[in-house]
């Protein structure tokens, strides 16, 4: 048997990586779809049943736990001049109005 040329070996490696990626992108979402749909449906049911408003993603401060319910100046809500001292505050984009130039 002829020894493999470097380009063959590299082609093989690339094909293996591409195959692994294709497997992950095409097969895994299908396999996990059922569990994912069940999870989403269960969470959506609880949201509708209890009238929940927010995701429990950033539980460290009141205004990050309930992002949609916090007042509009939440970074300063503890006392006037209080800066946002929780790391998750940095996840939030500034209010849309701040992006627009002042008239």
């Amino acid at each position: 048997m002829m020894p493999l040329r470097p380009s063959d070996r590299f082609g093989l490696l690339l094909a293996l990586l591409a195959l692994a990626l294709a497997g992950l992108l095409a097969v895994h979402p299908r396999l996990s779809a059922e569990a994912g749909a069940r999870r989403t449906a269960e969470a959506a049911r609880l949201v509708a049943e209890l009238g929940l408003t927010d995701l429990c993603l950033l539980p460290e401060a009141r205004y990050t736990r309930h992002l949609s319910q916090a007042d509009l100046f939440s970074a300063f809500q503890d006392h006037p001049g209080a800066m946002d001292h929780f790391p998750s505050g940095s996840f939030l984009a500034p209010p849309a109005g701040l992006w627009q130039a002042a008239p």
Binding site: L25, P29, S32, A33, C56, L58, E60, F86, P87, S88
Partner: peptide, 19 residues
């Protein structure tokens, strides 16, 4: 870890693939 911040409660991110 980044989402957890200074909180004790670490959210478990069991995400459904959406690409």
């Amino acid at each position: 870890q980044a989402l957890k911040g200074w909180s004790v409660l670490a959210p478990r991110l069991d995400l459904t693939p959406a690409i």
